[in-house]
C-alpha cells in the first residue's frame, strides 16, 4: 500500500468536493494510474461540512474501507478549519492544502499543526476571476499537483480540458476558465 496516495477533500455541500475527487480520479486514470474516488454520503445539505476521498496508485487498488490517514488533505473552504478537524489522521509527512488568502504560517498556527507541510492558495479568488463563479474545486487541483508533484501539470490539464469540454459542451467559456484557473493556482500556490 506504500505506493498508494490517499487524499481527503473537505468542503461544504454544494462546493464541489465530490466533483473535485471525481475529476482528480479521472485525470489520474488517464495518466495511467489506478484510482478510487468516493464521497461521504449522508443527509447533509448545502452548506454542511462534507468530505470526499481519492486513492491513487500505480498498483491495482482492491481496498474498500474508508480513508482515515490521508497523506494529502485539501480544504476547499477555510471556515471549515473552525469546526472540522481537518488534520485528523494526517501523518507527520502529510500535506495540507487550504483555499485561503492567508499564508501557510497563519494556517499552521490556526490548526496548531506541528508536522506536515502546509500550502495555501486563493482558489476562491482565482475561480471568481477566471470562471466567474466561486467554485474553488478545479483550481485546487492545480495547487495539488504543484504541492505534491503527483503528476505532470500539462498532461493533467489536457485530460481535464477534454473532460470539461464534454461536460460543458454548451458553455465553452467555462472550460477555458477552469483550465486557466488550474494553471493559475498551480503557479500561485504557496508552500512553507
Amino acid at each position: 500500500m506504500d505506493s498508494t496516495v490517499e487524499i481527503r477533500w473537505h468542503g461544504r455541500g454544494g462546493q464541489g468536493a465530490k466533483t473535485a475527487a471525481l475529476l482528480l480520479g479521472e485525470a489520474a486514470l488517464s495518466l495511467g494510474k489506478n484510482i478510487q474516488a468516493f464521497p461521504e454520503y449522508g443527509p447533509e445539505r448545502m452548506g454542511a461540512p462534507v468530505a470526499s476521498f481519492n486513492r491513487i496508485s500505480s498498483e491495482p487498488i482492491t481496498i474498500h474501507c474508508s480513508i482515515t490517514n490521508p497523506s494529502i488533505v485539501i480544504v476547499l473552504d477555510p471556515t471549515l478549519m473552525d469546526s472540522v478537524d481537518v488534520t485528523a489522521g494526517l501523518p507527520d509527512n502529510g500535506v495540507i492544502i487550504v483555499n485561503t488568502k492567508l499564508c501557510p504560517a497563519d494556517v499552521r498556527k490556526q490548526l496548531k499543526l506541528k508536522g506536515g507541510k502546509v500550502f495555501t492558495v486563493d482558489a476562491s479568488g482565482i475561480s471568481k476571476e477566471l470562471i466567474g463563479r466561486e467554485i474553488p474545486n478545479t483550481p485546487m487541483m492545480g495547487a495539488l499537483v504543484k504541492a505534491t508533484g503527483l503528476f505532470d501539470i500539462e498532461s493533467m490539464l489536457k485530460d481535464t480540458e477534454a473532460k470539461l469540454k464534454k461536460k460543458f459542451a454548451a458553455k465553452p467559456e467555462i472550460v477555458q476558465g477552469n483550465v486557466d484557473a488550474i494553471r493559475r493556482a498551480y503557479k500561485e500556490v504557496i508552500g512553507e
Binding site: 471556515t79 485561503t100 488568502k101 492567508l102 499564508c103 504560517a105 497563519d106 495555501t120 504557496i190
Partner: peptide
C-alpha cells in the same frame, strides 16, 4: 460577510 478579509501579510 462571516469573516473579515484576511490575507497573507508576508
Amino acid at each position: 460577510p462571516e469573516r473579515g478579509e484576511e490575507t497573507c501579510q508576508k
